[in-house]
Design a protein around this nucleic acid. Structure first.
Lengths: 238, 238
DNA sequence: CCCACTTTGTGCGCGTGTTCACAAGGGCGT
DNA sequence: ACGCCCTTGTGAACACGCGCACAAAGTGGG
């Protein structure tokens, strides 16, 4: 019934590959700027921090853009990857939350790569409205729907506190936004046609802490050291 | 030879599970605060945005902490997950880069969850040194090694521009830091014993753009529309 | 004390992703 | 024009993660 199709891979590029294409693109752009005309899979893989076989398989999903015995033409690959990622057109982005994070995002060098345009930076706090950040003026959250429509915003960025995130998300969705990038530490509920990606600082830190603990355990000897281990007990916890 | 062991899963918890534990933990903490004593896998899974079978399997890696017919004791699970993630001890974190991003991170509510202590916020820019952010004073980057040693920092956060990232990383590693959280858009080179996690805004945006383009293609009709498709050509790129 | 109901814990099949290893293909020197 | 050497593209084996579906286990009511 509500069975979700495993997304029949609309045109054949695996999700894992899509996630790596931007990394390749960045490495290629650096090569391009340094005037390098061609690059081997080995070299590019090393710069992207991946295995060269994986790189070749990833690129093979886009087509046969390499030349055996030579490598890949840098400029050509940049173009092909950009096109595949949809960066040959401009995407309008609206950021909600003009705190430090929202400002950091807005200042993030033309949003890291060309292809993205910040249509608006909005906040609920009247004191912030009107501030100038990265060449644009902070708008009030109530203008969200208007901006989304007028500027044809398709990607919404949520840089608000956790409590506000779901409400902002709902407004984005209601206004027609179909992709959301969420920096707030909450799980967002959205209709299935909307894509959500989450960036969560504290989760990343906790994952690092886990591995760090592993390493520390190893160093201090594998014997269970005297953990002051009176677990709350399944009955009385909290 | 340089064959990398596939990491024999030191104590049995799959990486994918580790990445979800913090999400469960957050949901559980919310339940705990609202006074809920027990929760079923179904309910918790829904709040965490995952499948309930997956949740049960994840939790089963920590041990048998549920009660059949009842569910999980919220307080007890909070404790067990915290312990597994290493959050029952405090980790010292140093942040390099006191721009908007660094400040956003420093202000991130006691770093999202207890278990982390910001030992220092450093920057290379003399004009920023001495600023007070989130109750601490911005230090100079040259004090990095001293701080790492004195405060026993094991996790380094890089919130600098791309050009500076590798150098900062090298200093972290040289000073004995074994986990790095990198916000700069570069691939860091580190010795194998160091863990690096990357958070990259522009990559996330590009992935969203990819899917957005897919959706748009679908809407405009599946026929290849007249892409002004004169690819630079493998010969003349750049 | 037993039975019906609820919910956990997990065996299993499937799809995805990763890596090795090699055949196919193209350039370049002679 | 030929053959060597380099690098791509991919078949196949393997590892991993996911989700279904069900047996095991504990609860509460009569």
């Amino acid at each position: 019934m509500t069975r979700r199709e495993p997304r029949p891979r609309e045109r054949g590029i695996p999700e894992a590959t899509v996630a790596r294409l931007p990394v390749y693109l960045r490495a290629l752009q650096a090569l391009s700027e340094s005037g390098t005309p061609t690059v081997s899979s080995e070299e590019l893989a090393s710069r992207a921090g991946v295995n060269s076989a994986k790189l070749r398989k990833d690129l093979s999903h886009l087509g046969s853009y390499g030349t055996r015995g030579v490598g890949y033409d840098v400029g050509y690959l940049v173009y092909q990857i950009s096109r595949e990622l949809g960066l040959t057109q401009d995407w309008s982005v609206a950021i909600v939350g003009a705190g430090n994070l929202g400002r950091a995002l807005a200042n993030y060098g033309g949003f890291g790569t060309r292809g993205f345009r910040i249509a608006a930076l909005l906040d609920a706090e009247p004191a912030l409205v009107g501030d100038r950040v990265a060449g644009l003026s902070v708008g009030h959250i109530d203008t969200l729907e208007g901006v989304v429509e007028a500027e044809n915003v398709s990607i919404g960025v949520i840089a608000t506190p956790a409590q506000a995130a779901q409400a902002v998300c709902d407004r984005f969705v209601g206004a027609g936004v179909t992709s959301v990038l969420n920096f707030a530490p909450v799980v967002l509920n959205v209709p299935p046609e909307v894509d959500v990606r989450k960036v969560d600082l504290s989760i990343e830190l906790q994952i690092l802490a886990f591995h760090e603990q592993r390493k520390a355990d190893g160093r201090e000897g594998p014997e269970r050291i005297g953990t002051l281990d009176a677990p709350p007990g399944p009955a009385g916890g909290q």
